[in-house]
Computed example of a mutant assay.
Amino acid sequence: MVLMAATRGLVWQDWDDVYIVYQPSSAETHVFNETTAAILRSLEAEPLAADGVKRETEAALGVAQGGLAADDFVFATRRLEELGLIEYLDEAIGGQ
């Protein structure tokens, strides 16, 4: 499964471990924790396979591979999808 950013041009503001994200396309402002922000930021450059996003997120958080609980990762990505910030794609992209 591949994840991709559904929108571009997000405006970020971080305060310690809280991330405020303004989404111009919907005129909505979102508040995220460090984990959710890291997931979203990992998709800014290009779509990635879900396991790649999880690995990049773990690296950004400074935890060992597998240190981010799968349930927490799935919950965060599904919430980002509900908000229209990411999309799930079934096909692989570019051998990822």
Rank of each mutant, 00 (worst) to 15 (best):
R78T: 08
D71Q: 12
P24I: 10
A45C: 03
D72K: 15
E56K: 00
I39P: 01
E58Q: 10
Q13D: 06
M1I: 00
I20H: 14
V31E: 09
T7I: 09
F75Y: 10
E44Y: 06
G95A: 08
E56P: 01
K54G: 02
A70F: 12
Q13P: 00
V21A: 11
E58Y: 08
V21G: 11
E58L: 10
I86K: 11
A38C: 13
K54T: 06
T29N: 01
L68D: 04
D72T: 14
L48Y: 07
L85I: 13
T29H: 03
Y88F: 15
R78P: 01
Y88W: 15
R79V: 08
R79G: 02
S25E: 14
P47W: 05
Y88K: 10
Q13R: 12
D72W: 14
W15V: 11
S25M: 13
A76N: 12
E82Y: 11
V53A: 14
E91N: 04
H30K: 09
G94C: 06
D51S: 13
T57N: 05
V21R: 13
V53Q: 09
D72N: 13
F32L: 11
E82V: 07
A60G: 01
M4P: 03
I93A: 04
V2Y: 04
E34T: 11
L83Q: 14
E34N: 08
F32I: 02
Q13T: 11
G84C: 14
S26C: 09
R55F: 08
E87F: 09
A38H: 12
V2N: 00
A76E: 12
A60E: 04
V11E: 08
M4V: 07
L68C: 04
V63Q: 01
S25T: 15
Q65A: 13
D16P: 01
V18D: 08
V63I: 12
D90N: 09
A60F: 02
P47Q: 05
D14N: 05
T7D: 03
L3S: 00
E56H: 02
R55T: 10
L85C: 10
A45E: 14
F75H: 08
T36A: 14
L85N: 07
G94P: 01
G62C: 05
G62D: 03
E91R: 03
T36M: 12
G66V: 09
E44S: 12
A27D: 13
F32H: 04
E46K: 15
E82Q: 15
Q23M: 06
P47E: 07
E82L: 14
V18F: 05
L10Y: 00
W15N: 07
A37G: 04
A59N: 09
L89S: 08
L83W: 15
K54F: 01
W15L: 11
T77I: 15
E87C: 10
A5F: 00
V11W: 02
A50T: 12
A27T: 13
Y22S: 10
L85P: 02
P24M: 10
D90S: 12
W12V: 03
I39Y: 08
V11N: 00
T36C: 05
N33L: 10
G62V: 02
G95I: 07
A38L: 09
L89P: 01
I86Q: 09
G62A: 07
I39G: 01
F75W: 08
T57W: 07
A92Y: 06
A70D: 13
D16V: 00
L83N: 05
D14Y: 00
L40D: 02
R78G: 11
Q23T: 12
L61Q: 05
